[in-house]
Design a protein around this nucleic acid. Structure first.
Lengths: 192, 192
DNA sequence: CACTACCTGAGACAAAAGTCACAAAATGCG
DNA sequence: CGCATTTTGTGACTTTTGTCTCAGGTAGTG
């Protein structure tokens, strides 16, 4: 497990929690590398989610089909994890689809393998807990965007706090992520 | 630990994860019971959050001060946990205030004690992880409310999925929770 | 019961956002 | 490069929501 391509993943894990080499090795063994072409789907609405995904390169979009149109609920860039936790946890059909927004390289962590590792290794379960903490904090922040800010303020928030979204995602997709019509976001952008 | 008043808490924990009696005892020892009068504050914006709270009776409201007015970001009813995870985790000033919306009985779990228990007991760390999973799933659902639904639809969602909020929370407070003006929610309610 | 503080309902108007239609620009591909 | 496809910008109009204001209602308190 001295795979150079896992550099980001390695750093992510060790930044999150202290972990001795044997646990690290086990954790890496639960994952498998995968290359995605643009638009490729790794989880389809209705399917049961079976893994947690780390993005090494490119980005993933999480979308919900609402009356035939795609609503972007999340974007996962390099050096971040994503999944559909609800589906993963309870083995129920996913209400989201996850697909590559660009050609991407990801590592998929198999749920069953992870659950076994949680039982065997305290360090790995600790990693799981801390990862969830991080995801939950990000999610809370995102929810509050909608309660505290107007659409214009939300866009400006992205500009200063999530520049990657502005730079790499199309206006149409950002608009559904912000919960406004495409035209509205176009006008917001025009004003500055 | 055969304290009858902890009945809900006991059930909550054992529903979430299997836990042998010694771990349960340790976990209970990390908590302390507290009675709150209506309006009493347990975490103030700017303070550092030091515990996770379980609501045994009554409810808590989580609020953010935005330009001098209170925005309700969350309500925690009986049989649920809450905290400000961001502040708890990184010992930074909380951006939220948590106060009792009714006379309440809560159990506060001390952060430092919990962290120690996590290291000692795999069962307790597992409980922590599963609790976070549950909180994250709820949070995701809540965020999607704003991306997928109009204000009217959001209110109807609460009616069918979170009736407690409709029944126990005032219209003014629900309105900021849904990100709309008080008058708008009043009109929505009027239409049915 | 009377007083206060708070909450809700309602009207009038202003502001913002959504919708529809179409033009312009950018992108991808042979 | 030229063509087709997708994305973005813009205007006109409709609908929704916000803001301001005030009246009526409710709950709690002494």
């Amino acid at each position: 497990m001295t795979d150079n391509t896992k550099a980001l993943l390695y750093k992510k894990i060790t930044d999150l929690t202290e972990m001795a080499q044997p646990s690290l090795d086990k954790l890496f063994e639960a994952s498998s590398r995968r290359e995605l072409s643009k638009g490729e789907i790794i989880l389809k609405q209705g399917q049961i989610c079976k893994n947690i995904v780390f993005v090494e390169k490119g980005y993933l979009r999480t979308i919900i089909d609402k009356d035939g149109i795609d609503i972007n609920t999340d974007f996962t860039f390099e050096n971040n994890f994503t999944t559909n936790l609800k589906s993963l946890r309870s083995s129920t059909p996913s209400d989201t689809t996850i697909q590559a927004g660009e050609p991407a390289i990801i590592y998929e962590f198999d749920k069953e393998k992870l659950l076994k590792l949680y039982k065997v290794s305290q360090e790995i379960e600790s990693f799981g807990r801390k990862l969830l903490e991080q995801l939950l904090i990000a999610q809370e922040e995102h929810t509050n965007l909608f309660k505290l800010f107007t659409p214009t303020e939300r866009y400006h928030f992205l500009q200063t706090n999530k520049p990657q979204i502005i730079q790499r995602i199309s206006l149409s997709q950002i608009s559904s992520y912000l919960g406004v019509a495409r035209e509205t976001l176009s006008r917001i952008r025009k004003k500055g």
